[in-house]
């Protein structure tokens, strides 16, 4: 940012965040390597698993009558895609740090919260778009949402909040390390947590300690809440559980990201 701009009237924090958010969204959209795997892999996994394990739907109690295993997997596809995208969005901050753009931002009169909010806007926008995209793409193949429009909206809201939560954790890691590779290293951990949940398979068909871990995993509560909207119908209670888990992740993530950003800013100044 030039001295001329710095000496002029300062933009409101919200407008600064909007400008940085717009930059984040455009930058994200222009890099297919950021969003293509996050879109293709979940679809591939759902397509393969629904075909390979479709017979599981015939086991009594797994899915309600009249529904399919593809419907069972729809929340998993959304969550998996959001995880990819959220972490990629957060790691963009590390790219900004590595490339020197962050230092230029810090040297400008931009509001500090706007740096974080603007960066996370890209992740949230992508999460929302993904949730809509997966529902639209899988719908012709039978992945309907019994909960109708309210149920679909719950899926989108959860996706947006989860993007924000994971994106903020990734942004915190980015602020701490300044290394995109280190942020990407966070993905396997999240993927393992997702595997240790009900995302890909019904918890009632697991057994032993693995089942216990899956039952206690907050991601199971979140996915199950989404699944109720898809398989059984709109349920405000189940939606509240899913959204509550996401808000918890957001609170932890924002706290972590804010602290790490403050730390980096203190070092920079």
């Amino acid at each position: 940012m030039t001295a001329t701009v710095a000496d002029g009237p300062r933009l409101h924090t919200g407008r600064q965040a909007a400008a940085l958010g717009r930059r984040a969204v455009v930058r994200f959209a222009r890099q297919p390597s950021s969003w293509v795997p996050a879109t293709v892999f979940p679809l591939l996994l759902v397509a393969v698993n629904s075909s390979a394990m479709g017979g599981v739907a015939n086991i009594p109690g797994v899915v309600p009558p009249g529904t399919t295993f593809l419907m069972f997997l729809l929340p998993a596809a959304i969550v998996q895609g959001v995880m990819f995208g959220g972490i990629n969005g957060g790691s963009e901050l590390a790219t900004d740090i590595q490339g020197g753009f962050f230092d230029r931002l810090v040297a400008s009169p931009v509001s500090r919260p706007a740096i974080l909010v603007g960066r996370l806007a890209g992740a949230v926008a992508f999460g929302v778009v993904q949730a809509v995209f997966f529902q639209v793409v899988l719908w012709p193949f039978g992945a309907d949402v019994v909960g109708g429009l309210p149920g679909r909206i719950v899926l989108v809201v959860v996706a947006g909040l989860l993007s924000l939560g994971l994106g903020s954790i990734a942004a915190g890691l980015a602020a701490r390390t300044g290394q995109p590779e280190a942020v990407q290293g966070f993905f396997p951990l999240v993927f393992i947590l997702l595997f240790l949940s009900s995302a890909f398979f019904p918890v009632q068909l697991m057994s032993g300690w693995y089942q216990r871990v899956a039952e206690l995993n907050p991601l199971t509560w979140m996915v199950d809440g989404m699944r109720v909207q898809v398989l059984e119908g709109f349920s405000p209670g189940a939606a509240a559980v899913s959204i509550g888990v996401c808000l918890g992740i957001c609170a932890l993530g924002m706290l972590f990201a804010t602290r790490q950003l403050q730390r980096r800013l203190a070092v920079a100044s």
Partner: peptide, 28 residues
């Protein structure tokens, strides 16, 4: 160190995750 992680961690993950998550498939 990053290179050794896939060698040690991934086998553990795959074995535990596949066997734990998909245990119910044996009921088919």
């Amino acid at each position: 160190p990053a290179a050794i992680i896939p060698v040690i961690v991934m086998p553990v993950f795959f074995t535990v995750a596949f066997s734990g998550t998909f245990r119910g498939l044996t009921e088919l």
